[in-house]
Amino acid sequence: MKGDEAVARERIVGRASEEFFSRGFARVSMDELARQLRMSKKTIYRYFPTKDDLIRAVFRAKTARIHQLFQETVASRADFADKLYRLWIAAGKELTELGQQFQADLRAFTPALARELETFRREEINRNFHLLIEHGIAEGALRRDINVEVLVQIYISAIMGVITPETLATLSVSIDQAFRTILDVIFDGILADGARPGFRTQLRDAAPRA
């Protein structure tokens, strides 16, 4: 069972994450967070002596969550179509929660963390997506003539370029619809013939009900 201090830290990080990712941390004051959490600013500073400490805690919690999702997905015994769907949807959503303003604030005010994020994103996606693709080829679920390097770059570009709040606003589609469309267009083309029915079933079963 978690102690009171651990619970308090998680509350602070959780609330700060919501605000930082949606608005950027430069626009969110510690006074505002204290009001939203209904605790004193002094209490927040007891756990996080500076705002930068809180920013780092939020950053570390998010990257740890993404890492866990990738690890669990790649290591699971699910079939390839299910792994592919989970990796793209679950991990992709986690990545896109890092809003554009938050990333801009990282670059402007905490360049070391901005560089760390870029390294993490590149290495985490590359390493785990490569593993998944290699497993898919070995299982006969993916075509063997695929250029894995190009495919990984398509994946990264789709996440960073298409699945953003700004882009989604212009397209008037939900994040789920955007992910599913990209999945359908890209991965249906790289799957081996025998794997397509299972993958299409996965997409159909996961579709939001009206």
Score class of each variant (00 low, 15 high):
R86A: 08
A64H: 11
G194D: 07
R77Y: 08
Q71I: 04
A114D: 12
M1Y: 08
E166H: 14
Q177M: 11
L113E: 00
D105S: 12
V58A: 12
L33G: 03
I146F: 07
L168Y: 03
D145I: 03
A26Y: 13
I12H: 01
L132N: 10
T43Y: 02
I156H: 04
L168P: 02
A26N: 14
K62L: 11
G99D: 07
Q153T: 07
K62A: 15
R56L: 03
I55G: 00
T119S: 07
D205W: 10
R144T: 05
H67F: 08
R11A: 03
V152Q: 01
M1R: 06
S40T: 12
G198V: 10
I133H: 07
R77H: 11
T119E: 10
A104L: 12
R86F: 09
L106Q: 04
L98D: 01
Q36Y: 08
A178Y: 15
D184F: 15
R122M: 03
Q68N: 14
A192S: 14
Q36S: 13
I125F: 06
T170H: 11
I190C: 09
F199H: 05
L69V: 13
A207D: 14
V13Q: 00
L131A: 12
K93C: 09
R143A: 13
I146T: 05
I89K: 09
D193C: 10
L106V: 03
I159G: 02
R180E: 01
F80L: 02
L69S: 14
I146H: 07
I12T: 04
P49R: 11
F199K: 02
Q153D: 07
Q100Y: 05
I159D: 00
R196A: 05
